[in-house]
Lab assay of single mutants.
Amino acid sequence: MQRVNMIMAESPGLITICLLGYLLSAECTVFLDHENANKILNRPKRYNSGKLEEFVQGNLERECMEEKCSFEEAREVFENTERTTEFWKQYVDGDQCESNPCLNGGSCKDDINSYECWCPFGFEGKNCELDVTCNIKNGRCEQFCKNSADNKVVCSCTEGYRLAENQKSCEPAVPFPCGRVSVSQTSKLTRAETVFPDVDYVNSTEAETILDNITQSTQSFNDFTRVVGGEDAKPGQFPWQVVLNGKVDAFCGGSIVNEKWIVTAAHCVETGVKITVVAGEHNIEETEHTEQKRNVIRIIPHHNYNAAINKYNHDIALLELDEPLVLNSYVTPICIADKEYTNIFLKFGSGYVSGWGRVFHKGRSALVLQYLRVPLVDRATCLRSTKFTIYNNMFCAGFHEGGRDSCQGDSGGPHVTEVEGTSFLTGIISWGEECAMKGKYGIYTKVSRYVNWIKEKTKLT
């Protein structure tokens, strides 16, 4: 034993070699072989497995989906700052455009905790909710729209109204504003409101030439003092309507412009014939205590009207009353817009006519005020429907199939267009061939041609 100890002390290297040989010859039971080890760690190889990531292109799944990435790591994937920024906006807080917040056709661009709407022409605001041009839906104005110097929408209202708090709607500024039905039992019968379409306001006024200088022999019209197929109006439903009495009662109609003036057809009036105007009328054979009678003290036909040349060209006249009318729910003026808007309103496509005229061709006159909704007829169809001249200051309205029309005794009465609950004068009943005849239409004086003249002559002093 002493000898062994001496050998170990003198030859430590020998001992180490012996131990190493023993270990190498022993069977290893701690580690699995290569094949079995792979069965336990069965993990798919990654895209760049075996390579240094710093030297390969980034992978979106590896960089940002398996674990949260930084902007720089995302930049490695896209290799483009702009594309990385677009991805980053949604990656950080989701897609803010998912709810489609942009209105009126706006395009949404996502941002971090926010979004941006790219608005089409005519709109602005956070969600493109603000109209900035009158060309689109009248700028959301209830009545009139004008573009300011910086191309912003400025709404306005006709006389007797003021802008509401929203700067879009119009509200009454006087007790009985024009064009409004205020009798409670008839307010439910107000005709369907007309909503502004998209309009090209630059070209809204037709490029028409008034044929002022045409000389033409007097034409022989049949029954051209021209509501057939209409309905009984309720008291106060058309408070701007008046009836004219002269040699015979209810020979023509008219509309209240203001307390002192009536507008009617020029062919209705004769110099030297006494005319009485009755406002607030409903049943011409009954006294309903809503009527107001006034005498006409002055007749002003349009300066281009000449019955000797043509009885229905420039067929418009103004009547001055001896005493002002007292405005109330049964006696209310009709609204008159400017030339541009009167023309736009007419193009809405349908209007209402009213009167006490004959209820059928050569038949009896109506006792109760009649009204009828009539569609506008395109000019080409209008011209083809008659052998008589249709001037540019006239328009056609009615039904091709016949059966409904204005008729004798309705002449001078109103053709009105309702705009968001307020009625505007767009025409004056003038003439036609018979009444409600198939293929024939009622012919009306186009008020847009005469609004400046009306307003100039009827100013209240």
Results as ranks from 00 to 15, higher is better:
Val4Arg: 10
Ala9Ile: 05
Ala9Lys: 04
Ser11Leu: 11
Pro12Phe: 09
Leu14Gln: 02
Leu14Glu: 00
Thr16His: 09
Ile17Pro: 01
Cys18Tyr: 02
Leu20Arg: 01
Gly21Phe: 14
Gly21Pro: 03
Gly21Glu: 02
Glu27Tyr: 03
Val30His: 15
Phe31Ser: 15
Phe31Cys: 15
Leu32Gly: 15
Leu32Lys: 14
Leu32Met: 11
His34Phe: 05
His34Ser: 08
Ala37Cys: 14
Lys39Tyr: 07
Leu41Cys: 10
Arg43Ala: 13
Arg43Gly: 12
Arg43Glu: 11
Arg43Asn: 12
Arg46Trp: 04
Arg46Pro: 12
Tyr47His: 13
Asn48Trp: 10
Asn48Met: 12
Gly50Arg: 07
Gly50Asn: 08
Gly50Gln: 13
Lys51Ala: 14
Leu52Asp: 13
Gln57His: 09
Gly58Pro: 15
Asn59Gln: 12
Asn59Trp: 06
Asn59Ile: 03
Arg62Tyr: 05
Met65Gly: 03
Glu66Cys: 03
Glu66Trp: 03
Glu67Tyr: 08
Lys68Arg: 12
Lys68Asn: 15
Glu72Ile: 15
Arg75Phe: 06
Arg75Gln: 03
Val77Ser: 13
Phe78Asp: 12
Phe78Gln: 15
Glu79Arg: 08
Arg83Glu: 05
Arg83His: 14
Thr84Gly: 14
Glu86Phe: 07
Trp88Gln: 15
Lys89Ala: 13
Lys89Pro: 15
Val92Ile: 09
Asp93Ala: 13
Asp93Gln: 15
Gly94Ile: 06
Gly94Val: 06
Asp95Lys: 14
Cys97Phe: 02
Cys97Ala: 02
Glu98Trp: 09
Pro101Ala: 12
Leu103His: 09
Leu103Thr: 08
Asn104Gly: 09
Asn104Val: 04
Ser107Leu: 06
Ser107Glu: 08
Lys109Thr: 13
Asp111Lys: 11
Asn113Gln: 09
Ser114Ile: 06
Ser114Phe: 03
Cys117Tyr: 01
Trp118Gly: 03
Pro120Gln: 13
Phe123Asp: 07
Gly125Leu: 02
Lys126Gln: 07
Cys128Ile: 03
Cys128Gly: 03
Glu129Ser: 15
Glu129Ile: 04
Leu130Met: 10
Asp131Tyr: 12
Asn135His: 14
Lys137Gln: 14
Lys137Ala: 07
Asn138Pro: 13
Asn138Arg: 12
Asn138Gln: 10
Arg140Thr: 10
Cys141Gly: 00
Phe144Glu: 00
Cys145Ile: 01
Cys145Trp: 03
Lys146Ile: 12
Asn147Phe: 07
Ser148Val: 08
Ser148Thr: 12
Val153Asp: 05
Val153His: 10
Val154Asp: 09
Ser156Asn: 05
Ser156Ala: 07
Cys157Val: 00
Thr158Met: 08
Glu159Thr: 07
Gly160Gln: 03
Leu163Trp: 02
Ala164Gly: 09
Ala164Phe: 03
Gln167Asn: 06
Gln167Cys: 05
Ser169Gly: 08
Ser169Leu: 03
Cys170Asn: 01
Glu171Lys: 06
Glu171Arg: 04
Pro172Asn: 06
Ala173Arg: 05
Ala173Gly: 09
Val174Phe: 04
Pro177His: 01
Val181Ala: 08
Ser182Gln: 06
Ser184Tyr: 09
Gln185Lys: 08
Thr186Met: 08
Ser187Asp: 04
Thr190Arg: 05
Ala192Gly: 06
Ala192Asp: 10
Thr194Leu: 04
Thr194Val: 07
Thr194Met: 10
Val195Lys: 03
Val195Pro: 09
Pro197Leu: 13
Pro197Trp: 04
Pro197Ala: 08
Val199Phe: 07
Glu208Cys: 15
Glu208Ala: 11
Asp212Asn: 11
Asp212Pro: 04
Gln216Met: 08
Ser217Pro: 10
Ser220His: 06
Phe221Ser: 07
Phe221His: 10
Phe221Asp: 10
Thr225His: 08
Thr225Pro: 10
Val227Lys: 09
Val227His: 05
Val227Arg: 13
Val228Pro: 04
Gly230Phe: 12
Gly230Pro: 12
Glu231Asn: 11
Asp232Lys: 10
Ala233Thr: 09
Lys234Gln: 04
Lys234Pro: 06
Lys234His: 04
Pro235Cys: 03
Gly236Gln: 05
Pro239Gly: 02
Pro239Glu: 00
Val242Ser: 00
Val243Pro: 01
Asn245Trp: 05
Gly246Leu: 04
Lys247Met: 11
Lys247Asp: 11
Val248Met: 11
Ala250Asn: 10
Cys252Gln: 00
Cys252Thr: 01
Gly254Ala: 03
Val257Arg: 00
Lys260Phe: 07
Val263Met: 02
Val263Ala: 03
Thr264Lys: 00
Ala266Pro: 00
Cys268Tyr: 01
Glu270Ser: 03
Lys274Ala: 05
Lys274Val: 07
Ile275Lys: 01
Thr276Pro: 00
Glu281Asn: 04
Glu281Tyr: 08
His282Trp: 11
Asn283Pro: 03
Asn283Asp: 11
Ile284Val: 10
Glu288Asp: 12
His289Thr: 10
Lys293Pro: 03
Asn295Gly: 05
Asn295Thr: 12
Val296Pro: 02
Val296Trp: 00
Ile297Ser: 05
Arg298Asn: 13
Arg298Gly: 04
Ile300Tyr: 07
Pro301Lys: 07
Pro301His: 06
His303Gln: 12
Asn304Val: 03
Asn304Phe: 12
Tyr305Asp: 01
Tyr305Trp: 13
Ala307Gly: 12
Lys311Ile: 11
Lys311Phe: 05
Asn313Lys: 05
Asn313Arg: 11
His314Trp: 11
Asp315Glu: 02
Ala317Cys: 07
Leu318Lys: 01
Leu318Val: 08
Glu320His: 02
Leu321Ala: 00
Pro324Lys: 09
Pro324Glu: 11
Leu325Tyr: 02
Leu327Trp: 09
Leu327Ala: 03
Asn328Asp: 09
Ser329Phe: 07
Ser329Val: 06
Tyr330Gln: 12
Thr332His: 09
Cys335Met: 00
Ile336Val: 13
Ala337Ser: 03
Asp338Glu: 07
Lys339Tyr: 14
Glu340Asn: 15
Glu340Ser: 05
Tyr341Leu: 11
Thr342Trp: 01
Ile344Met: 12
Phe348Gly: 14
Tyr352Asn: 13
Tyr352Cys: 13
Gly357Asp: 15
Gly357Phe: 11
Arg358Thr: 12
Arg358Asn: 08
Val359Leu: 11
Val359Thr: 07
Val359Pro: 03
Lys362Trp: 08
Arg364Asp: 12
Ser365Val: 13
Val368Gln: 13
Leu369Ala: 14
Leu372Lys: 15
Arg373Cys: 04
Arg373Leu: 08
Pro375Ala: 15
Leu376Arg: 10
Val377Tyr: 03
Asp378Trp: 03
Arg379Leu: 15
Arg379Gln: 15
Arg379Asn: 12
Cys382Ile: 03
Cys382Asn: 02
Leu383Cys: 10
Arg384Asn: 14
Lys387Cys: 05
Lys387Glu: 15
Ile390Met: 06
Asn393Val: 03
Phe395His: 02
Phe395Thr: 02
Phe395Tyr: 04
His400Ile: 14
Glu401Tyr: 05
Gly402Glu: 14
Gly403Gln: 07
Arg404Gly: 14
Ser406Phe: 14
Ser406Trp: 12
Ser406Lys: 05
Ser406His: 13
Cys407Asn: 04
Cys407Arg: 05
Cys407Pro: 05
Gln408Thr: 14
Pro414Thr: 15
His415Cys: 02
Glu418Tyr: 13
Val419Trp: 07
Glu420Met: 12
Glu420Tyr: 14
Ser423Thr: 09
Ser423Gly: 09
Ser423Pro: 02
Phe424Glu: 00
Phe424Trp: 08
Thr426Phe: 00
Thr426Cys: 00
Gly427His: 01
Ile428Thr: 02
Ile428Gln: 04
Ile428His: 03
Glu433Tyr: 08
Glu434Cys: 12
Cys435Leu: 02
Ala436Tyr: 09
Gly439Ser: 15
Lys440His: 14
Tyr444Gln: 01
Tyr444Trp: 01
Thr445Gly: 02
Thr445Lys: 00
Val447Leu: 13
Ser448Pro: 02
Arg449Gly: 15
Arg449Asn: 15
Asn452Ile: 05
Trp453Thr: 00
Ile454Gln: 00
Ile454Trp: 00
Ile454Ala: 01
Ile454Cys: 00
Ile454Ser: 01
Glu456Ser: 10
Lys457Met: 15
Lys459Cys: 14
Lys459Phe: 09
Thr461Ser: 07
